[in-house]
Nucleic acid binder design. Structure first.
Lengths: 340, 340
DNA sequence: CTGAAAGCGCTTACAG
DNA sequence: CTGAAAGCGCTTACAG
C-alpha cells in the first residue's frame, strides 16, 4: 500500500510476482486467466496487483504475443450521420470483444488511405475494417493479403475475395420503385451525388433495373451537389431533365433532406404535390415534416456485422471470404402520395 | 527483391541494417530522421527498407521509448451528429501530428468510463481526450494525474485543474435571449433534456441569468424526452407550464428539430406563429424548413482545440492547466418572428 | 558519423 | 501447478 517511491518507475509483472512470492511466468498466467494456476496462488497474485496498482502493458505483451487487441477502422467521412451510426455499431462489438478501435478518416482520398493503412500496420492492428475510398485500386487489398493483414470491407467493396458487410442496395431501390409504382407514379426521378463506388453503382443499377422491369423510363437521373448546404437550391434540376417527374428517389437521406427543403422552397408540398423517398433511414427521417419515407439500411447493424466478420476472420484466418449483405426495409411514413 | 522465404517472419530493423551494411542503431537513426547520419548512408538504408518491404513496429519502439503516438478519445455518445463533428475535429489534428486516435464510447456511464480509462492506459496512450460522462467523480481525474496520464476535458469539465476545451454556453444563451427579447418576446421557454453535467448547467444558468437581467420570467423550463423520436410528441408540454410562451430556446439542435416537428404537428407555424432557436448549429439547421436560427458552438473547432491542448500538454507536461473556451455565434435564419 | 551491448515488460516453450 | 531462460523489435546511452 505505501506507494514509497513508485511514481518514478512503473510497476511491472516482476514486481507483482515478487510481492506475491511467485515467478513472473506464474503472474503472467494469472493475468491471462489460465486454469493452470491454483486458486490460492491466483488470489495472492491478484492482491499483489491491487496493492501495487499494477497496470497491464499491452504494448509489451503484443511484442511477444503478436496480437495487439486493436482493430483499425478507416472511413471516408466522419460528419455524415450515417457513418457515425456505422462507427457506433463497430465500436460496440469491438469493445465487447475486449479490443479497441483505432479510428482514421480517409476523406475518400486513396492516397491518404494508403498512408493510413501503413500507419495501421505500424501500429500493429490485428485487422482493419475499411470502407474503401472511391477509386481505391484493388491492389490495396492484395497488398494487405500479402501483409497477412486481415481486412473486411464495409459498405463498399472492391474485391470479391475479401470479407464484406453491407446492405442490399439494389433490393432497396427495388422496394422504393415498387412502392411508388404502386402509388401510380410513372415518371420517377433518381437524385444522386457523391463519389462513384460500388454502393453508388448498386443503387443506380438497382434503380434502373427496377424501373425497366416495370417499363418505366429509367433515365430521369439528376446529379445534385455534394455539399449538403447546396442541395436545396438544386431542386429545380429535377424538372429540367425531360419528362416532369411526380416523385423522386434519393441516393441517401442527406439528399432527401436537401431536396425536401428545396422543393418546399419551390412551393411544392411533399406528400401532397410531390413524392419523395429517402435512403438509409437515419434518425432525421422521423423528425422531419412531413416524415420521410425512407429505405432503411440499418448502418448500426452493418457496423456490427463488419466487426463480427473481422473477429471471425481473426479466429479463422484461412477460411473462405464471406459476405454479409442485409436486407433493406422500406420505412413508410408521410412523404409520398398516390397519383391518379 | 526476391521475397524468398519472407512471409514466415517479419523483416526487422536488423535485416535492413545488414542489407545496407550498417549497424542496427544506424538504421534506427535513419528512421527517426536523425541528422547524425550521412546522406549516402541514409540513402542506402532507405533503399534497403524499400527492397525488404520493411514496416516500422511502433509497438516495439514504444516499449523502449515510452511513447505510443496514440491518443485515447472517450465520448458519451457516437450517434449524435454533434459528437461526430467533434470527433472529426479531433481526428484531423491528431492525424496531422502523425498520431492516431483510440476511440471509445462511454455511453455516459461512469463505470464504463472507468473501465475504458483503464483500457486506454493498458494500451499505453500518450494522453486522453475525455468528454466526461454525467456524474463522473472528480477522483477519476485525480487518479489520471497520479498515473501521469495527461487528460484534457472536452465539452464538459469536472475539474478546474485540468485542461479544458469547450464553448461559452452561457454566453450563447445570452445571445439567444437577447435576440428574442429584441424581437419583442417576453415569455420565453427553455426546453432541456439529457443528463446533467457542466454544459447542461452552464446553458441553464446562462438562460436564467439572461432572462433575469431583462426582468423576464426565467422559470418556463420544460424537460423533453431524451429519445430523439419522442421529442415531437412532447411539444404540448411547452404550453402546460404556466404562462403561454411565444418562443422557445432549445438545449440543442436535436431538441430544436424534435420540437419544431411537434409544433408543426400542433398546427403552429414556426417563424410565424411561434419562434424557436436551436443550439449548436449542426448541419441540419440549414436544411430544415423553415431554416433554424441556432447558436453555433462550432464542435469541429472545439475538437481541434482539445487535440491541440493535448499535444501542447505532451510537449509541456508541467505547465498550468489551460482552458480554451470559444465564443458562440447566433446564426440567424428563419425560425423566429418579432411580436408586437 | 557508426557499432556493440543492454534493456523496455511481457509471453513462450521447456523443465521440474 | 511453478520457475529459469530466451526472445519479441526496437531505442538508448556509451564508446569509438
Amino acid at each position: 500500500m505505501p506507494p514509497e517511491d513508485r511514481k518514478k518507475s512503473r510497476v511491472t509483472l516482476l514486481d507483482v510476482a515478487r510481492r506475491a512470492g511467485v515467478s513472473r511466468a506464474t503472474a503472467s498466467l494469472v493475468i491471462r486467466k489460465s486454469p493452470l494456476v491454483g486458486a490460492d496462488t491466483r488470489l495472492r497474485v491478484e492482491e499483489a496487483m491491487r496493492e501495487l496498482g499494477y497496470v497491464y502493458n499491452m504494448g509489451a505483451a503484443r511484442l511477444r504475443a503478436e496480437r495487439s487487441h486493436t482493430v483499425g477502422v478507416i472511413v471516408p467521412n466522419l460528419t455524415n450521420p450515417f457513418f457515425a451510426e456505422l462507427l457506433s455499431g463497430i465500436e460496440a462489438v469491438v469493445d465487447a470483444a475486449g479490443m479497441v478501435v483505432l479510428l482514421a478518416n480517409s476523406g475518400d482520398h486513396p492516397e491518404r488511405q494508403d498512408m493510413l493503412m501503413r500507419r495501421m500496420r505500424e501500429h500493429g492492428v490485428d485487422g482493419v475494417i475499411l470502407c474503401p475510398a472511391a477509386d481505391t485500386k484493388p491492389e490495396l487489398l492484395e497488398r494487405a493479403l500479402d501483409w497477412q493483414l486481415p481486412v473486411v470491407q464495409v459498405l463498399r467493396h472492391i474485391s470479391a475475395e475479401i470479407d464484406y458487410a453491407g446492405a442490399d442496395y439494389a433490393g432497396g431501390m427495388q422496394q422504393a420503385v415498387d412502392y411508388l409504382a404502386l402509388l401510380g407514379h410513372r415518371r420517377i426521378a433518381f437524385a444522386v451525388h457523391g463519389p462513384v463506388h460500388s454502393a453508388y453503382r448498386e443503387r443506380t443499377d438497382g434503380f434502373r433495373a427496377a424501373m425497366q422491369e416495370r417499363q418505366l423510363d429509367p433515365g430521369i437521373i439528376v446529379r445534385v451537389p455534394d455539399a449538403t448546404a447546396s442541395i436545396p437550391s438544386a431542386a429545380p434540376l429535377l424538372f429540367d431533365a425531360g419528362p416532369r417527374p411526380t416523385a423522386v428517389i434519393c441516393f441517401n437521406d442527406v439528399v432527401a433532406l436537401g431536396l425536401s427543403a428545396g422543393l418546399h422552397d419551390m412551393g411544392l408540398r411533399i406528400g401532397e404535390d410531390f413524392s419523395l423517398v429517402g435512403f438509409d433511414d437515419v434518425t432525421d427521417a422521423e423528425t422531419m415534416r412531413p416524415r420521410l419515407s425512407s429505405v432503411a439500411t440499418a448502418p448500426v447493424t452493418i457496423g456490427e456485422n463488419s466487426a463480427r466478420l473481422l473477429l471471425d476472420r481473426l479466429a479463422e484466418p484461412a477460411g473462405p471470404a464471406r459476405r454479409m449483405v442485409t436486407e433493406t426495409h422500406l420505412h413508410i411514413r408521410q412523404s409520398c402520395v398516390s397519383v391518379a
